[in-house]
């Protein structure tokens, strides 16, 4: 049913072939803001179940890439395919979220006037139609699911508290919790440990590794904190001026002279 509704690419031997077997496929993606190229022919392929970290100096285009994947920004050029053949550039944010792509923003955005519990309740995977939402009643099982998530992100004792009153780190956790509630197939985490203490950072790394372990979902994590990137131990993609500069293990990219120049040259 989903396949019928979704516009698909039907080029005989275009991106479809190269995208075969991928969960996310970006090719030649270009985004310009008033002539300035935030993304410059960016290409990136993510396998199902893969955990990928993305690093790069400020302004490299990391957040813009997530904007393109989640439908917030339309690319000027290039292919963005989800699950091999779903063209994301033709869908809007809510359709993409419904497809199974979740996102945690760089600046933590939770619903400040709602309680922590209510934030998770809104994220819970349910029918999103207006009437279904009006008549929604939380089942016992769903309440347990929320309680389990609260436990998992360490906010169990703050369930009734207004989300606006949480610390920066706690908001990050709540947003990760919201992602978990949505039960998405692809998670995009933009700087998940910014503003966290060392202990919190460590716990977040464990949580992410835990999420990646059973390979049922794919994760893209953008982060500046190299300790954290090392802890994740995943393949690293280095972005610079809107395109991929290097890709490989953390040690390999750190030894790459081009990467060293970009990081030290500024």
């Amino acid at each position: 049913m989903l396949d019928d509704a979704m516009p698909t690419i039907d080029m005989p031997a275009g991106p479809g072939v190269l995208a075969a077997g991928s969960i996310l496929y970006l090719d030649g993606v270009t985004v310009s803001f008033d002539g300035f190229r935030a993304l410059n022919s960016l290409s990136l392929v993510l396998a199902p179940g893969e955990l990928r970290t993305i690093v790069g100096p400020n302004g490299a285009g990391k957040t813009t890439m997530m904007d393109v994947i989640t439908g917030k920004t339309r690319p000027d050029k290039g292919d963005v395919l989800f699950d091999q053949n779903i063209d994301l550039t033709r869908l809007d944010e809510s359709a993409i979220a419904t497809l199974g792509i979740g996102r945690k923003f760089q600046k933590p955005t939770v619903f400040e006037h709602l309680s922590v519990f209510e934030n998770l309740e809104l994220a819970l995977k349910t029918n999103r139609s207006t009437l279904a939402t009006l008549f929604f009643r939380l089942s016992g099982q769903q309440a347990e699911q929320i309680a389990a998530t609260l436990q998992r992100v360490g906010l169990a004792d703050k369930a009734r508290q207004q989300a606006g009153s949480l610390s920066h780190g706690q908001k990050q956790w709540l947003e990760i919790g919201m992602l978990l509630m949505q039960d998405q197939r692809l998670l995009l985490l933009d700087e998940p440990v910014a503003g966290m203490t060392d202990a919190e950072t460590e716990a977040t790394a464990e949580l992410i590794l835990d999420l990646a372990r059973d390979k049922t979902r794919s994760l893209v994590v953008v982060e500046h904190d190299m300790e954290f990137v090392r802890a994740l131990g995943a393949k690293v993609t280095v972005l610079h001026e809107g395109s991929v500069l290097a890709e490989g293990s953390l040690d390999a990219v750190q030894a790459n002279p081009k990467v060293v120049e970009v990081y030290l040259g500024r």
Binding site: S94, F111, L114
Partner: peptide
């Protein structure tokens, strides 16, 4: 007081964020 009410408040406070959760602020 329904869940829709809470989504409405979420739309009021951070409309674009609501979209990324899969709700349609337009429909609401």
């Amino acid at each position: 007081t329904s869940k829709l009410g809470r989504v409405m408040m979420a739309v009021r406070d951070a409309e674009s964020r609501v979209r990324f959760l899969g709700y349609s602020p337009t429909a609401i």
